[in-house]
Amino acid sequence: MFDYLQYVRQENFPHIWCAGCGDGIVLKALIRTMDKLGLSQDETVMVSGIGCSSRTPGYVDINTLHTTHGRAIAFATGVKIANPDLNVIVVTGDGDATAIGGNHFIHAARRNIDLTVLLYNNYIYGMTGGQCSPTTPRGANASTAQHGNLEPAFNISGLAIAAGASFVARGDAYHVKKLETLIGKALQKKGFSLVEVVSPCPTAFGRRNKMASPVKMMEQLRDTVVSVEKWEKMTGEERKGRFRTGILRDIEKPEFTAEYAKLIEKMRPEE
């Protein structure tokens, strides 16, 4: 039996997430992956901003920072540069990372600093009452789009790839084993790695969009997720209303803290 309790702060449970929220599922996947990789709890830091997903550090018994809205990656950058030996994990959401924190997100990807960003994409601002986020699908309802959202949504993984991230993957809260594999690869990657996790928000998103129950949201994930391998063989018509999960990019490029260490060596005065 897997012992989750050694990794969590039991005094904070039950957690605040709503019934059927995917955030707990993703956290458990992360915990199991950390355990599998043998990541030391003392040498792992989790940094978050503000939002439902950003409540995650409160529940994990590792070094944690719960910072300001959109700035998780900025704080994490500081932690990583100060001590590059630490495993630094950023837990953020679609609103936190791609709206108010959008610039930190793209520039960390461009800089290729060794952070693992776990971005829970639930298509909405859940905590504040279901307002449109940058990933709310066009036509979907939100408290600030009661007749359907007029704006096209951000493709977060595409954004990270375009900005220069060295590892980008997308997973979802239904296909948990696959998600663990993706998180594992991201944690092991030396460079900026993003795992975008499509995570259901039954309360703020589902109820406004004909998916009133957590089960319905999970069924929707089951029925719309396609693997990257299968996606390649599908026609444009077949791809409609579906999205792909898997590794979307995995390349090697110079990592920021390693380059910085080299610079320090180079600038050291000769004896």
Binding site: F13, P14, G24, I25, K28, A29, A173
Partner: peptide
């Protein structure tokens, strides 16, 4: 059930 329980409420052994 354990893998998908969001609330850390189920364990199987």
């Amino acid at each position: 059930c354990e893998l998908r329980c969001p609330d850390f409420a189920i364990t199987v052994e």
